[in-house]
Design a protein around this nucleic acid. Structure first.
Lengths: 348, 348
DNA sequence: CTGAAAGCGCTAACAA
DNA sequence: TTGTTAGCGCTTTCAG
């Protein structure tokens, strides 16, 4: 019946209905100023009547960017990054963008590859929690090709991008201070992934505070499985300098540590005080509830998107501003695992 | 210097270099059979030399689908769906697809809208955890337009799509049976979101088992905040038919319940046995460790992607097969919160 | 302020 | 087996 196979209206049909040329319709769509108001009205009516919608593929072919933003995180199933993804997607939608996601699985090669694939899809901007260790020229090229990039949670080595980071160091200092205030003298610190920026910063915060108090740091790194935590703990408990408090650098380590301590019937906080970096839903349900340093993934994502959207907007203006650096505060949430009081305070 | 602004090679340049026509290159790319081997070699060499890559926008314009799959879940920050997203994205990548994600925020309208936007982007297939309550004609239209759709976790009312579901009912029956086996006579059941398929099924499983045992179901629904759980619990504890065991229908409810019980110093499992639907990372770290009915989001996502990829592949063959329905088993993970033994067994 | 022509990179349909 | 022609829907010239 119909001559058209699919009834998706094109700019051409709108033009015909409105009795104007193609270009006029195009101008109306892209609200170009030089269209007479009356003409615009006609065209808009036709657009409404036909339910016309732009065909993005055609625009892409003409060199426009897609209404798409890319998000790359190490692991989408990690509660922290999942929360970021949710927020990013939400804000993107509110601004007419859809979200392309990828997990880098902590592999720099995979990360760059995904970034390039996204760039080929003409995303308008890229949000990146990077696992890259050193300056990467392929990413550099992406940025040079005028793709707005915002790094969050971790900086992007070598590239001068906008970045939204968290006060890891101040958080670790606050955590360590908190333990000192409770009178602890032998405070250990466990974690893994010490080549990740965030963890390195936390270690520095710990080390600085401990040394300032003229105490000796006890740092156990690369402790990433339950078995390794158990082994380390056994050794620590038996050592002559047995710690009376432990600062856990990762959520994972915290969980394993609690499990290992429970197995060994070590009473928290009496025999061992515990404080963990990264808050989590069940921290308050544990017995005793765990004192933590909390970051806000929602805030992190929100600020990052904000920067990215600004970049995208101002992009056409080509004004090469300074790259923005935002440092978000953390909160020390005092619960029961270090003994004592139970109020919470800002750390930084 | 360069006449070309950007040095992305096109099919045309490949043709020139290989000294063949455009179409030959196109044929090689789409491995059309009728190309002489020697010609193909030449073209492939040229492609390699130039580092040619297809321009998807141009293909889209010619009516092809994008190497994109869409994923819509209620909430990306939910650990369960986050895990699904991670798996989906991983498998998609292995098959050359990128992933477009959206959270429906449990809003059917938003869900359909996002699905339509994805369809407009010419995704090759859609994975959907639907919040839709009744047959929706806009989704129907998407399916009619030949977009492969796979529903998972929840069926898609009215549409005859492939679906991967979980044995919610059998899981609830197993949970209830487990409590019965421990001698409980007054078993309550709390949850919310009873208009969600999965929860309805769980309630049915509970009700069926309880009634079969000639006991009286005690079902509390719509209990979704900590306050509501507390209020309900206070009432239940004081009631003349005070339950000795509680089956929690959601992860959220389980958490609140544990918290409320802890506040009231109700001993688990002595004074109250607890079993929760949905396993979670910290279930084994709690005191006592929580007995749960576990589903596997990874398996759910894996099977769904498998179905979707098959659909996409066989799509061209246009053979309208029956829609597949897969029902995944759950596992009862017996820990300490019901007392007694501590081994785990398959439920279905 | 408006429109006609040219072409973005690719492929379907036809010719050769 | 190969190449030529004609668009897909849009925007960027450049004329009116």
């Amino acid at each position: 019946m119909n001559k058209r196979k699919s009834n998706v209206p094109t700019i051409r049909e709108v033009a015909k209905l409105a009795r104007v040329g193609l270009m006029t319709v195009s101008r109306v769509i892209n609200d170009h100023p030089s269209v007479r108001a009356s003409t615009r009205k006609k065209v808009e009516a036709a657009i409404a009547q036909l339910g016309y919608q732009q065909n993005e593929a055609a625009q892409l072919l003409k060199g426009r960017r897609a209404k798409l933003i890319g998000l790359i995180v190490p692991d989408l199933s990690d509660a922290f990054f999942a929360s970021c993804a949710q927020t990013v997607q939400h804000i993107a939608r509110a601004h007419g963008f859809m979200t392309l996601v990828a997990a880098s699985e902590r592999d720099p090669e995979l990360e760059v590859e995904q970034a390039e694939l996204m760039a080929k899809r003409m995303i308008s901007g890229l949000l990146l929690v990077s696992s890259i260790k050193e300056s990467d020229e392929r990413l550099q090229r992406l940025q040079d090709s005028d793709l707005p990039i915002v790094a969050f949670d971790r900086p992007l080595p070598g590239l001068n991008t906008d970045a939204v980071l968290v006060e890891n160091r101040a958080g670790a200092e606050a955590a360590t201070q908190h333990l000192l205030k409770h009178g602890h003298q032998r405070i250990a610190c466990v974690g893994y992934d010490q080549d990740v920026y965030t963890v390195r910063e936390r270690i520095e915060g710990y080390r600085y505070t401990i040394q300032n108090a003229r105490l000796k740091p006890q740092i156990a790194l690369g402790v990433k499985t339950l078995e390794e935590v158990q082994a380390w703990l056994d050794e620590a408990l038996d050592s002559k300098s047995r710690p009376t408090a432990i600062f856990s650098l990762n959520h994972r380590t915290s969980v394993f540590l609690l499990q290992a301590l429970a197995e060994r019937n070590v009473q928290i906080p009496e025999e061992m005080a515990i404080i963990g970096f990264d808050d989590f839903e069940l921290a308050s349900v544990l017995k005793p509830p765990l004192t933590t340093v909390a970051q806000s993934p929602v805030e992190l994502a929100r600020r990052s998107m904000q920067l990215l959207l600004e970049r995208i907007r101002s992009h056409k203006g080509d004004v090469q501003q300074e790259s923005a650096k935002i440092l978000l505060p953390v909160r020390l949430i005092i619960r029961g695992s270090c003994g004592g009081h139970t109020n919470s305070a800002s750390a930084s």
